[in-house]
Design a protein around this nucleic acid. Structure first.
Lengths: 367, 367
DNA sequence: TAGCGTTGTGATAGCGCTATCACATTTATT
DNA sequence: AATAAATGTGATAGCGCTATCACAACGCTA
């Protein structure tokens, strides 16, 4: 039960009275607009300080229609990818005089819809969203249509007229796998979450990746597609037993999947993980089994973390410039706020291959 | 340049007209309060849906004086400690129907002051703050006095009438060091950031920790104090050469400090780090030098991370229940919103010692 | 029939500001 | 000196809602 009496705060009118000027003058002095004489400005400022006046953004937003606030809908702040991106978003927003309202969707479209409703009710000036499912985005489309600019981060939902900041997941993954294939690997396992229906559909068409519609795939689906394409291009047919979708408790599940993979009659000679959480679990399994990398198993994962250079052997990874991507999202948003009619822009960032010991002699640059 | 025309949005009045009811009825139907007949409620809801009506929280806050928003001032979201805490804060807030406005202080009091000003202007209903410097908190005190409830997380600023959620840094650190001493170590190094003046003052009184004023110490100062107390209690005099304050670029600096420590004529037999960022840098140095843990050097650090169990050898650490601490901060805030006059509550969480290979045979439980 | 509570509806003040007038005064230009 | 422009001030509408009235219509009891 919330107490009902909102506390009485000092208002501009009281400051005006204290300073013996009209409310209009006080407003101009405090708000920094229009004409005010130096004398009165000082009077007003002194009065404001004396009374402990705090401007009320709510009231200001009420009349201006702007809040100088950006809403963020991310999957999970405790995931390092988002933590880094959120930092970039927050810093860059601040630089432009905007604040950030943060929400978590937990990769759940229902929660996302809810979060969106709240952010729109709060009248944020713009949104940065990582859609939980790119195939279920009517709510996002409606927000854009009603006039709230939106930038998609990490994932692009088809059919939404909005800017985006992404990497080319298919190509990054394809290149990584192609490298392993060129390095001589033929049994490459992939451990990844496959949270959505459309991503899982890929499992039924392992040999015809070209028939998949990229625009309906989420991040991990796209990474799996890259895996399939690399195989296809090399004339190889992927073994379904080596593709392991994990379930919800991601890290633990990745560990379990990896244990099972290595227990196969014909285990993989190399393993590729869909993100850093998968990498954590898979590597835990590898340690547990005492498997030696890269001789017995080559290892490469999506998303680079500091610690990957410190484990033995060190782990190769595909690095996304997360902070820069977050900052870029805000740049695009600011550009759109300035000119709402500009054509939508899609910023594709480069993925860097960080080659460490876990792929030594196992990976060859492909192109 | 921001475009100036705020876009025209559907208001309650328009919904009322569309539904052929008075604005008051529409307000009650949409706001879910007071009497409305079933018939009219349905009419209004239909009209709202038809027009794509979105409630305006700003206007509502204007009259109610509440925003259902919690402001967070944290040091750095990309630091795993805060990322975890922020998750706890956000989740728990959401459970209570509150949203979170996130800001970063970068451990800088100036930025913190700024962030506070903005959050108060936005009329947040409450604050969760990790003060950058517990000795420079007049701005926080004023906020509390003006009536915005505030919970301090991770650090307590003296003389502020507010709730707090912390761990006992002195005791946790003292116990860890005492364990190393009992384990036979006499030359224990400490690598930690010492960002504030008051923390650095400790360096001038290594042998009389009891003369330090705990309430003026920040997190890392308190941890250093624990280190000193443990030595004192064991009748040992700490070697100043083994206490290494790092500077700004934390991880790299910790690496450098560790390299220098190990190059000493008489190097430490054990090393203790002030947080996970320090641990990362220190461990990188240890790997670089090829030092074997725990034989050549016992290792223990503050803050546990997933990867610490995966490096070779695995690293011992003091684990804080970060998520729970974030959630607890919101619990306290909600309790205070419900009864503003309740006495302030200080929640002290337990620190768990995660003993792994890096302290094998080097650490003995002390009490 | 009068008197009462219950249920539903409408009118409207006002939250704290900004923006826009109208107007007063000073300074510059012809 | 007359006019125009620049500079400063005050009054006030209104942003979209909620909360508070006043009141009407209805069924109930006495």
């Amino acid at each position: 039960m919330i107490s009902r009496k909102p506390l009485k705060r000092v208002t501009m009118n009281e400051v005006a009275r204290e300073a013996n000027v009209s409310p209009a003058v006080a407003a101009r002095a405090l708000g920094g607009y229009g004409y005010v004489s130096e004398t009165k400005r000082t009077q007003v400022e002194a009065a404001a300080a004396r009374l402990g006046y705090r401007p009320n953004m709510i009231a200001k937003s009420m009349v201006t229609g702007r809040t100088r606030t950006i809403g963020i809908i991310g999957a999970d702040i405790s995931n390092p990818f988002f933590a880094g991106a959120v930092k970039g978003i927050a810093d860059e927003s601040r630089r432009h005089g905007f604040d950030t309202l943060l929400t978590n969707s937990d990769e759940n479209t229902e929660i996302e819809r809810d979060a969106l409703r709240v952010l729109l009710a709060k009248r944020v000036d713009g949104l940065v969203v990582s859609p939980a499912d790119v195939n279920d985005c009517d709510h996002l489309r409606e927000a854009v249509q009603q006039g709230t600019p939106l930038v998609m981060l990490d994932r692009i939902a088809a059919g939404i007229q909005a800017d985006s900041v992404v990497i080319d997941n298919v190509e990054a993954s394809r290149r990584a796998i192609a490298g392993l294939i060129t390095g001589g690997h033929r049994r490459i396992a992939m451990v990844t979450e496959l949270g959505t229906q459309s991503d899982r559909k890929l499992l039924n068409q392992l040999d015809k990746p070209e028939s998949a519609d990229v625009t309906t795939l989420n991040t991990s689906g796209a990474r799996l597609l890259g895996y399939l394409v690399a195989h296809r291009q090399a004339g190889l047919s992927p073994d379904p037993a080596l593709i392991r979708p994990t379930d919800a408790y991601a890290s633990a599940s990745a560990r379990q999947c990896t244990l099972e993979l290595m227990a196969l009659e014909s285990p993989p000679t190399s393993i590729f993980t869909g993100d850093s959480v998968m990498t954590l679990g898979a590597f835990a399994a590898i340690q547990h089994l005492g498997i030696s990398l890269p001789d017995q198993l080559a290892f490469m994962g999506f998303d680079d973390m500091d610690w990957m250079g410190l484990v033995k052997p060190s782990l190769s990874a595909l690095r996304q410039p997360v902070y820069a991507m977050g900052a870029a999202a805000i740049e695009l948003l600011m550009a759109r706020l300035a000119s709402p009619e500009r054509p939508s822009e899609h910023r594709v960032f480069e993925v860097e291959s960080i080659l460490r010991d876990s792929t030594r002699n196992a990976w060859c640059c492909h192109n």
